[in-house]
Design a protein around this nucleic acid. Structure first.
Length: 225
DNA sequence: GCGACAG
DNA sequence: ATCTTGTCGC
């Protein structure tokens, strides 16, 4: 499986992907949750390009214990264009997650799923390529819209495209901006909310994503010190 | 035409 | 993603 380098190629891949109907994942009692994150140099403006350096990390957590971590220092694979995030991050995320041992049972990514111009965001595509259930967690929706939930931990409210609910706002902490939780590859809405809620450990952002971000930022900062 | 637009 | 001050809270 390869990653498209041109918008037209990626769009064609997304149009295939949207027709795929994988079997829903059946989470066991206890499972390993992974997270992946990419940092870019400070001061970048605009969509960026393949010349941008990128620090990408992935982790696996068993409860709160980090049982695997990988860091890849490389370059972005392309610019960021709305709806075409895979051009910038697809190959990086794919590579770093494949290095993890043990592999996670489910992976958290900063990307959307069905909330996408072609209903085929990177959370879905990465899961399909890696054959791994995924859940998307973003700061804001891409295409969907919906009002915020009440300011109570655990509060949710629908994010819809037309009449379809494609994601949900989730208030992970009282008094903070809600996150957007996206069902990804082989996950549905209730499952995605359950997985994110179970990995919060008291913070606004799920621990696997916080840990991966820590590693990436630490690597970036350690170069100019 | 104008604005919005995952990271 | 990154750029941004102060501020409230554990």
């Amino acid at each position: 499986m390869t990653w498209p380098t041109e918008p037209a190629e990626l769009i064609a891949r997304q149009q295939e992907l949207v027709r795929t109907q994988p079997e829903l994942w059946a989470p066991p009692e206890r499972f390993l949750i992974g997270g992946v994150w990419t940092c870019f140099p400070r001061g970048l403006v605009g969509p960026g390009s393949a010349t941008d350096r990128a620090w990408t990390s992935a982790v696996v957590l068993d409860g709160r214990q980090v049982v695997a971590m990988e860091l890849v220092t490389d370059h972005a694979s392309g610019p960021y264009l709305p709806g075409l995030l895979a051009l910038r991050l697809g190959p990086l995320w794919n590579d770093v997650v494949r290095r993890l041992h043990p592999r996670p049972d489910v992976l958290l990514v900063d990307a959307t799923g069905r909330d996408h111009p072609r209903q085929a965001g990177l959370a879905l595509q990465l899961g399909a390529v890696l054959d791994l259930p995924t859940v998307g967690v973003t700061h804001r929706p891409l295409t969907a819209s919906g009002d915020w939930p009440a300011d109570e931990r655990g509060g949710t409210s629908p994010l819809t495209i037309g009449t379809d609910q494609v994601a949900t706002w989730l208030r992970t902490r009282k008094g903070t901006r809600p996150l957007v939780v996206h069902p990804g590859w082989r996950t549905d809405l209730p499952m995605a909310i359950r997985i994110v809620s179970a990995s919060l450990a008291g913070h606004r952002t799920p621990e696997p994503l916080r840990e991966a971000r820590r590693l990436s930022r630490r690597a970036r900062e350690s170069e100019n010190l």
